[in-house]
Design a protein around this nucleic acid. Structure first.
Lengths: 189, 189
DNA sequence: GGTAGTAGCCTAGCCCTCTTAGGCAAGCGA
DNA sequence: TCGCTTGCCTAAGAGGGCTAGGCTACTACC
């Protein structure tokens, strides 16, 4: 009886690909076992439970996204950096809907702290260096940026913009213009 | 044998409450049947399938939210209206996390068109009357507003802001300030 | 007030998923 | 070569989704 050669890494990658194809909610231990030509129960040798699988997809996605964003950001500053970041974010979400959805699960604090989400946050702050914001404005601006990106991408995906004919690409670049404008001239109270 | 008196309306309401308590993903036909003191199979007399249940929760939530927003908007204009809208939105999402999550499912076009999401969109546009934007800027602005609201609320809920001590309430009101600023001075290209 | 008929519920039963417990065998290290 | 660990297996139970087919209580109509 030949061994299937299952490892956590291969499982995670296959799960991530499955998520992009059929949605995270359909990423099941059983389906994964079938892909590896193995019985479901065997996967529990590598995995604690089904939840761990989802967490691993999320961590993988977080790391991949951070890499992409880092690459996009290299050598850019100001609005250029903002747009590059935003596009890298949106493109990733569209190319990997399942991975992106998996990213939204609630990680427990230690896991989150050890994840690439931290790198993500650092890079977002780096963008703001071009806009000369000091705390707490910087934190507020980071949160607003992230909200806009995530909100737009998320609504676009679930069809929240479908009722208006306007191409979402256009709205997206105008949103980035608006974001740039408000960051340039952040309202101090 | 007394009849349990199950109706689609009662089912939907109970399901929505269950969603707020245990999360949409745990709203199961079986759990609902238990609450009504009825067997699971019996609910299929009232419901086509489990998916219909989720759709109904979403439609209920959409309608409730639209009512709240309408009430909050009454007699207000400009930034006042913006803030009232935004707070009604965020408050609803926090009071009803399960209902809010249910709202994010992908409704098929006809269902979406018949939903209260339409009212929602109309009201968002109404706010923008105070900011004198013409098409297509108006659509872009509506999309950005909605993105910011949804993104913020969603990230706040999944703990995306937890790594920074700054109170989210503060960031929220500054985001609204920023949104007001950018709507007042929408960047035309 | 009897009698259809239908609305509302039930049982039985199937399939799928998650998960635990315990067993066997392949291949490595000593 | 002999174990021992690693990687897979079977068996089995608990839930959940859903269908088919049956029984009963209420309704409406004659």
């Amino acid at each position: 009886m030949a061994r299937a050669g299952v490892t956590v890494e291969r499982l995670t990658l296959a799960a991530a690909e499955l998520a992009d194809e059929v949605g995270v909610e359909n990423v099941t231990v059983a389906a994964l076992a079938r892909q590896f030509g193995v019985k479901d129960a065997s996967l529990y040798f590598h995995l604690k439970n089904a939840h761990e699988l989802r967490v691993r997809i999320a961590l993988l996605a977080l790391a991949e996204l951070a890499d992409r964003v880092a690459a996009a950001l290299a050598g850019r500053a100001g609005k250029d950096a903002l747009v590059a970041f935003a596009n890298a974010y949106r493109d990733y979400a569209r190319e990997h809907p399942g991975r992106y959805a998996a990213m939204q699960i609630d990680l427990d604090p230690e896991t989150a702290a050890a994840s690439a989400g931290v790198r993500h946050a650092e890079m977002t702050r780096a963008i703001l260096r071009g806009y000369r914001l000091s705390e707490p404005d910087q934190t507020d601006a980071v949160r607003m940026m992230h909200s806009t990106f995530h909100g737009f991408v998320s609504l676009e995906k679930t069809g929240g913009f479908r009722h208006t004919p306007r191409p979402t690409d256009d709205s997206w670049s105008r949103a980035l213009d608006a974001l740039d404008a408000v960051l340039t001239n952040w309202p101090s109270r």
